Amino acid sequence: MRWTIEEIRTFLDVLDAGSVSGAAARSNLSKSVVSKRIADFEAALGTALFRRHAGRITPTESAEELALRLRPALTEITRAVESAAWGMAGLRGTLAISAPMSFGIRHLSPVIAEFALQHPDLEILLDYDDQFIDLVRGRFDLAIRIGQLPDSRLIARKFCEDPRVVVASPHYITQRGEPETLADLQAHPCIGYLNLQSSSVWQFLREDGSVVGLSLDSRISANNGEAMRDMAIAGLGIALLPMFIAHDALTSGHLMRIARDLKPTSLPISAVWRPVKPMPMKLRAIIDHLAKAFSDGAPWAL
């Protein structure tokens, strides 16, 4: 039985991506190379890892069980090799980071670019997606999370708190009037967020410090904050947005802040990672770099 680390990596990439083409795009390889590696790995193991039908592949039970054992083993091998290399010549290897789409593009990319320039031998993979990423099963070293963190086995470090603001377009306010109270908000159409229930988005602090959530009607909903902002600018309703998305539109006057006496809950911005010992130098370095970049709080806050 002969197999290679490259075949194992490719096998896990195909499993994660759900297709040969997806794995090829992730790893910057041709589909033929990916297919050959999978075929060679299956030949070495003497068993099929994927079912092929009409151009689609699905993993077998053996593949799922094998992946559960290979992921931590591959992580340990990679960590051992990279630790030896770092001791001689700085940060090397691969660092995979997941982050929400809007925050990643607008605010994280320049910070990561600065880090990449400081460590030219480190390969960095950025995946921007508003969907929840499972770090335990996924291939990422680090994820940026915005909002309250659920209890989990992950280690977390909070960088800052981002305020949220209730906003609407000047035209909308001219036509519909400005809501001032929680009861007023319920009489207005809101721009909904598809990834969370309305009552989980529209949350406000009472004077006693407790949190109240509102269920508001949404004429239009989106799964991305910038799309929600654009819908609000178009006058389709009110929106509750993080300041890192609303800031520029407020500054330009395309949106106006409303219901100023209300206190929306803020959004912690944190990094999370799997508990690994010893902590890889590349992981410690990027977390410290991000913490420094956001040490003065949310730099986009008004």
Rank of each mutant, 00 (worst) to 15 (best):
A54R: 13
R51C: 01
A54Q: 07
A43G: 03
T58L: 09
G46P: 01
R56A: 06
F50H: 03
A73Y: 06
T78G: 12
A85R: 13
F50W: 06
A84E: 13
R79W: 02
I77W: 12
L49V: 07
H53T: 13
A85E: 12
R56E: 04
E65R: 15
R69K: 14
P72T: 09
R52D: 00
G46E: 04
L68Q: 14
E42Y: 04
T78C: 07
L45S: 06
A63P: 03
A85W: 06
T78W: 03
E64R: 15
L49S: 11
V81K: 14
T60L: 04
S62Y: 11
T58N: 00
F41G: 00
I57D: 01
T58D: 06
F41R: 01
I77G: 07
A63L: 10
E76N: 04
I77Y: 15
A54P: 00
A84V: 03
T78D: 15
L45M: 11
I57T: 02
L70P: 05
G46S: 02
A54G: 01
A54W: 01
E65K: 14
A48R: 13
F41Y: 12
E82Y: 03
R69L: 11
I77L: 15
F50V: 03
P72L: 09
A67H: 12
P72A: 05
T75P: 00
T75F: 14
R69T: 05
E61I: 05
P59R: 10
L74I: 07
R51D: 10
T75W: 12
S83H: 08
E65M: 10
T47N: 05
R71W: 04
E76V: 10
E64S: 12
L45Q: 04
L68G: 01
L70M: 14
A54H: 14
R56K: 11
A85Y: 05
A63T: 10
F41S: 04
R71C: 02
A80P: 00
R56V: 01
I77E: 09
I57Y: 04
T60W: 02
T78N: 12
S62P: 09
S62F: 11
R51F: 03
G46F: 06
T75I: 11
H53V: 15
E65S: 15
R79A: 14
R52S: 09
A48T: 08
R56H: 05
R69Q: 14
P72Y: 13
L49C: 14
A43C: 01
W86Y: 11
L49R: 07
A48E: 12
T78S: 14
W86V: 15
A85C: 00
L66V: 07
F41N: 02
R79V: 03
E65A: 12
E64P: 00
P59K: 13
A43P: 00
L70I: 09
R69Y: 02
L74F: 04
L49Q: 13
